[in-house]
Design a protein around this nucleic acid. Structure first.
Lengths: 252, 252
DNA sequence: GTGTTTATCGTCAGGCAGACGACTATGATC
DNA sequence: GATCATAGTCGTCTGCCTGACGATAAACAC
């Protein structure tokens, strides 16, 4: 089959972002309110078109910076531990997923520490951190008693896939530290696991496990009492990215 | 930002396939020879354009059927165990990955049992199963002493990602059975793990492990001596998709 | 029969995880 | 300042799983 530009249909390609963080002991995702049809007024995942000269990862990083101000953590610079983790999640291309035209969306997953209030085009009322269960429940009522509309497009599916990816990935990688500030305690890390998995973990076994896994945590020497109680050692993320043996998620 | 069709650049969207199988104790991938520029005469992964009314998974299944005759295993029909496993792998969208135009490729990973010779457009000389190390080595010489050219486009990267996905996924899922015929012995399954991981496994511990993992294997009652030696029990894949505890890949 | 090949069952020691007790060091409360 | 609540850290014990074997079984080739 020789090259023939008319032989393939044109697509629009977008990136959508599942930006996760842990706030007040619960796993939250960034949602933006749609200002135009379709799904006007509904909540959706942030995203946008990929530009003509842009890689997919670049487009995702640009959208993330536009929505949150976050820069992406560069693995080549381990000292600079600020910035979010960003990875490709999956691609969604159902012909009917966007009623306007044929859009293929390359979803990305971003993990960030707890942030100040989000901004979306400078308008704070159009962006928020919401617990993922709240965003994923269909047609119920939110914490404030307000009725909850499902996310626009297939974004509920994308969010669900992103959450599942995060839940499984913190088992065998050190990614849970991406939810933490640059310096954190074992208890803070444990609360990340508890929030993402939605389970309670034994503090003593957790402490033994993470401090015993080589390369996971490196002590900084400092301590903190910001959680109350006895002062806790501060750690930074170690160089290891893959945990061996992995963290074990308790049975349901 | 109102809807404006001129606001986004048009993309071509393709699916590329990493089709893996185990032949003669080594992990092989399907490669097709390119008949036209760019990369004319070079080996590449099979793939093609996504049609206007087609889902991404449908496009991948269609390409797989065109290249191999394989149908995709439908998880809703566990009895019909023939057919390949197919899943989305990742999406590649570097602006320069295709010199002709902006192409975003949604790569898929397919796992198949050992097959008869492949066909590509009816021409067998333009398709072959090749060991993945052979396809991935850069500028060396193949088993037959012929010089090896690297795969076209970024297909070496895609193949490498697919192999890595397969290697890690058989650790915690029952996907290794997708490389086996509908009925297989523990030894055949072990040789799959050995080929995919490139390691030797202890037959006794492997046997204990897989027969002891609930839902992994169900005995069919039959036996076979097709491997020589003492007759071995035949098994089918059990309903379990996730292995708990996982298979452990030996340290390198 | 003898040797070879593959399958299968057992044994044993080391390591890790879950359950949980004990102790420590803070801040809050009276 | 004594007491309490909170959170962190160190140990112990037991059961299970794994890796490293030995041993036996059942076919085929000669």
């Amino acid at each position: 089959m020789p090259y023939d530009p008319s032989a393939f249909p044109p697509f629009a390609v977008t990136v959508d972002l599942v930006v996760l963080t842990v706030r007040r002991h619960s796993l939250c995702a960034l949602a933006v309110r749609r200002g135009e049809p379709p799904f006007q007024g509904r909540w959706a995942l942030p995203g946008g078109f990929v530009r003509a000269d842009e890689d997919l990862a670049q487009a995702a990083a640009r959208e993330l910076a536009e929505e949150t101000g976050l820069r992406v953590h560069d693995p080549a610079v381990p000292a600079q531990d600020n910035g979010a983790h960003l990875e490709q999640l999956a691609t969604y291309g159902d012909p009917k997923r966007d009623p306007r035209m044929r859009v293929v969306s390359v979803a990305h997953l971003a993990l960030a520490p707890d942030l100040p209030a989000p901004r979306a085009g400078g308008d704070a009322s159009n962006a928020r951190w919401a617990p993922v269960e709240e965003l994923l429940q269909q047609g119920g009522y939110g914490r404030d008693g307000e009725p909850v509309a499902p996310l626009a497009f297939d974004h509920a599916q994308i969010l669900s896939d992103g959450v599942e990816r995060a839940r499984s990935k913190i088992e065998y990688s050190s990614l849970a530290t991406a939810f933490c500030p640059p310096e954190f305690t074992v208890g803070e890390l444990r609360r990340v696991y508890e929030a993402v998995w939605g389970v309670a973990l034994d503090p003593r076994n957790f402490h033994r496990k993470v401090t015993g896994t080589p390369g996971f945590l490196v002590p900084t020497g400092g301590t903190t009492t910001r959680q109350g109680g006895r002062p806790a050692q501060l750690f930074r993320a170690g160089g290891a990215t893959l945990l061996n043996p992995p963290m074990l998620r308790p049975e349901v």
